[in-house]
Computed example of a mutant assay.
Amino acid sequence: MNTPASLSIRELNGLGELALTPSLARAVWGEGDHPEDPGLLLAVQHIGGLVAGAVDGDGQLWAYLIGLPTKDAGIQHSHRLGVHPSARKQHLGEKLKRFQREWCLERGINQVRWTFDPLLLINAHLNIHRLGAVVRTFLPNYYGEMGGINAGAPSDRFEAEWVLGSTRAEAHLAGQPSETWPQQAFHPLEAELPATLPEQIAVRIPKDFYRLLREDQARALDWRLKTGPLFTRLFAEGYTLTDVSLSREHYLFERGAEC
């Protein structure tokens, strides 16, 4: 596929456009993925959910997002966000999330939550640093055994909490985060957390976990098994994941931070 020159970020319309999502899902997550049926996505829209995409002038779908209603009227669950591998340098993930934010605020929805792999640094950077979400919840092996690009390791997940109108979200969306970083970082494969922890702690994260999973599964599993207990302890002790640095390959956890 050729990379598109211009794209429209909007809701997908009708079964014809919704039917484009399964093939895109397999391009993103692998042939072992189990994408949602287009008829189900039509029902999601009918009951008040969001199915949005990045569509070019020829009607080709390059990225999509699914947002589901929840039992809490003011909270939406963001179920899927996928970008075609050929279009990943156009910030489509961020554009879709910004579209989702405006869509939700127009309908009185003030918070969006979603899960993501705790070891995917680039995803975490978008979710936490670019958008201003935070994480306070770790979900071990949340989906059980998975296929596609997720095969070969437990499906641990973080739950992101994005308070759409918060001062924090506004600052991060404007590119003006206020977090400060400690000079030293903890490496999960080289040491254990000390008994007493500071108010801030930086944690090293692998640069490309998916690549590591393909090329060195044993080390990828070591990362998974060492970080699970670490995240569990930090959240149990009142820490929040508040920022992500791509250049350092670090997560920043702060005790008692607000959303």
Rank of each mutant, 00 (worst) to 15 (best):
N110A: 05
A133R: 01
K226D: 01
G59L: 04
Y143M: 03
W103D: 07
L68K: 02
V244E: 07
T232K: 10
A151Y: 06
Q60V: 10
L193E: 10
V134E: 06
K226V: 00
E199P: 00
K207I: 13
R211P: 00
D222H: 13
A124M: 01
S166E: 10
I201Q: 05
G30K: 11
E11N: 03
L96T: 03
G67F: 11
R219S: 13
I149L: 14
A87G: 14
A25C: 14
L241P: 03
T180I: 13
Y143F: 15
S155V: 01
I75F: 05
D37H: 08
G175R: 04
S6F: 08
P35C: 12
I47N: 01
V51G: 10
R10Y: 04
H77F: 15
T21K: 07
H84I: 01
I109H: 06
R80I: 11
L246R: 11
P177E: 09
I201L: 15
R214T: 07
L246K: 00
S247R: 14
E179R: 04
R255W: 09
T3N: 12
S23W: 04
E258P: 04
A27L: 05
T70Y: 03
R98L: 15
T115P: 06
G165H: 02
R113E: 15
P140I: 06
Q76Y: 06
L105V: 10
G59P: 05
G30C: 02
W103H: 08
G228T: 02
G59D: 07
